[in-house]
């Protein structure tokens, strides 16, 4: 199937499109990957049929309106092609699988530890955070946590003197059986290659 990625925009504010969606479009353009963009309330059955894979972009610190509209994302449970949720997109995936949104503010560059290779990231990597909330995916049996939360409680990391984040938040997750990925950090700012790597899955 020829690549035709669907980018889902969850921003309520028009101006946030340029900050959270456009940079993802630019990465795809630079990698010559075909895509189309839809606002989440306008995603149709036809769009889902056309899409070879889906990226649900993030949004700003105060824009949580999408979470009141989870019904627009029920298609995630039946979609059988790869999905990547970034920040707010990850909240949506976690919420649909029964996770609860919890408060944790992290802003700026942080060095995180990846217990296993995750879309090209492994061991220590600097990532860009911009969130007030997270979902603890370690409580969701369907998912494996690759970075953050329980990964950071490993004795080697707790005792490490290196500057590695001790974040309690699940930072990178994958569904154990499906190609559903989530990341709390923003790959459009740092580690842009994640987007390309996702398109190879």
């Amino acid at each position: 199937m020829k690549e035709n990625l669907l980018i889902v925009n969850i921003c309520k504010e028009k101006l946030h499109y340029l900050e959270f969606v456009k940079p993802i479009c630019d990465i795809l353009d630079n990698n010559r990957i075909r895509y189309f963009v839809r606002d989440y309330i306008k995603v149709s059955k036809d769009d889902l049929k056309k899409a070879s894979r889906i990226i649900i972009c993030g949004t700003s610190l105060f824009d949580n309106y999408f979470i009141k509209n989870l019904r627009y994302f029920n298609w995630i449970m039946d979609f059988d092609k790869p999905i990547l949720g970034i920040c707010g997109g990850m909240h949506i995936i976690g919420s649909l699988f029964g996770g609860k949104i919890r408060r944790c503010t992290e802003i700026g560059f942080h060095t995180e530890y990846f217990s296993k290779e995750f879309l090209g990231l492994k061991e220590k990597c600097e990532v860009y955070h911009l969130h007030n909330n997270f979902i603890d995916f370690s409580k969701l049996n369907d998912f494996e946590v690759y970075c953050g939360g329980e990964v950071n409680s490993h004795p080697d990391l707790v005792n490490s003197e290196e500057k590695i984040s001790k974040s309690k938040c699940s930072q990178a997750i994958k569904h154990r059986e499906e190609n559903i990925y989530g990341m709390l950090f923003h790959p459009e700012v740092r580690n842009k290659e994640i987007i390309r790597n996702f398109c190879l899955k």
Binding site: L18, P23, D26, S60, L61, F62, T105, V189
Partner: peptide
């Protein structure tokens, strides 16, 4: 902005 409870818009971000 987060502390003051207002939105922060960066329309040129990563351009």
């Amino acid at each position: 902005c987060n502390k003051l409870g207002i939105e922060c818009f960066n329309p040129l971000w990563q351009k």
